[in-house]
Nucleic acid binder design. Sequence first.
DNA 1: AAGGACCTCAACCGCGCGTGG
DNA 2: CCCACGCGCGGTTGAGGTCCT
Length: 453
Amino acid sequence: MSCSISNDSKELSADSALFDEGGSYGGSSNVGVVLKKGPWTSAEDAILVDYVKKHGEGNWNAVQKHSGLSRCGKSCRLRWANHLRPNLKKGAFTPEEERLIIELHAKMGNKWARMAAHLPGRTDNEIKNYWNTRIKRHQRVGLPLYPSDLCLQAIRENQQNLNAPGIPGGDTGCQDLLQSNGCQTPDVMFDSLNTNQGVLPYGTEFLDGSASSLLMKGFNSQFSCFIPCMTRRQKRTREPDEFISWYSNSTSDDNPPFDRDQNDVYQNNTAQLVVPCCTYDPDPVTKKLLSFGVNHSHSILNGHFSASKPTAGAMKIELPSLQHQETSLGQWRSPPLPPVLELVDSFIMSPQSVPLPPDCPSPRNSGLLEALVYEANSRGNARNQSSEKSTGSSKISCNNITDSSALKTSSTEFRGYNDPRSPLGNSSGSVLSECTPMSATGSSLEENVPGKN
DNA sequence: AAGGACCTCAACCGCGCGTGG
DNA sequence: CCCACGCGCGGTTGAGGTCCT
C-alpha cells in the first residue's frame, strides 16, 4: 500500500526533509519519545502498513509503542485512514462523485465522515478538501453550490409547512427580520436536482430529506444571517474552466466561463450580495430548531464560513444540510405552487424565469451539472450586459441569451430584489447562496449508508 | 525571469463522544 | 456517577506547486 503514496511527488519530496528530526516539523514529546510530525515517509508508511496487517486496525496508541514508529496514535490512524488502507480511491473525483458530494453536502452539511461513507474509497479528508476548494470556488465566482431545484423545492415544501397548521417554525417573522436586516438580494440560481435522482446510488434515500425544509428555515427562520457571496477579490479564477469541464455534455459551450471582468462585476456587487441563511434556535437552552422537526439542518449554499464557531450574536453557523425527517421523496418533487409562492419563485428564479429561446436548454430540465453550466454561462453573459448598462448597482443580468428582451426582463426582476415592494422585499432575494440553518441530529442517510453496519 | 497571489492537499489540533473501570 | 482513555470528526494550518502580472 505504501507504494500508492510513494509515487506521490509530494511525499517523495518530503522524504528527504522529514528524515531530519530536527527540522521545522519538530515533534512532540510523549513518554520520553520524540514523536515526529509532518509528512510521512515511505519507510514510516511501510512500518505502519506492516503493523496493521499483523495486528489490525484500532488501538492506535499501541502502534507507536509496538511498531517503533515515532508517531502518535492519531497520526497513525489518520495516515492509515487517508492513505494506506486498502481500497482507497486515488485521483480526482469522478463527475458522479462530485455530484454526489454536492448533494450529500446539501443534505448533511459538513459531515464529512458521513459523506465519505457514501463514497466508497474516499476519505472524509478528501471530501472536505474537495468541498473547501473546488466547490467553494463556485461561490466565489458567483455560482451556486446547490442546484436551484433543491432550493426551490425547499421553498415549496416550507410553504406547505407554513400552510399546515400546528407545525412550528412556520413563523412569518422571517420577512420582517430579513427586511430589518437590510438584506438585499443575492444572485443565485439553482437548478434541477430531480433529474439527478436516477444517477444517485441511493437517490431516494437521499431525497427523503428536504432541501425545502432547509431553505425555508432560511426564509422563515427567526434568526437569519446574511453573508456576502464573495469575500475577497479574486485576482484570478481558474475554476470556471475546470468547472465547466465538469459537464461532459455541456449544453452551451459558446459562452466563455467567467473572466476577470466577470469577477469584477461580482466583486463590485459583493457588498450587496447577501443571502438569507441560518436558522437559529432562539432557545439558548434547548439549542434545538423550532422549525418543523428539522434536527439536522444546515443552510443551503453556504460555503465560506466555519460551521463550528459561533458567530456574533451567538449564532452558530453551519454548512447546509437539507435534512428533514418528516419529508419524503414525494415531497421533494415539486408540488403545485401556490400562487403567491409562484411569484416568489419567479423572483428567486428570475434568471431562469426569463423567457428562454427554444434552443437554450433550461436548467430545470437538465441535470445538476448542466444546470450549473447553464448558470455559469448565464453569468458569463451577464458580464456583457454589465458592460452595457451597468453601473455599480447590484443589478445582475443573468441571461445573455440572445434575446435582448429577455435581458431586460431579467434586469428588471433583479431590480425587484431590492425593491421593498417586491415579494421578497428588501431582503430575501435570492436563494440562499450562503444559508445555514442549524442542525441537530443525524440524518436518514446515516441509517442507510451503503455498507454501513 | 522574478515575485507575488492563489490553489491544493496532507497533516495537525482541539473537541466531543463512547466505553470501561 | 465520575473519571480516564481511546477514538473519530471537523476545522485549520502550512508547505509546495501553479498561475498571473
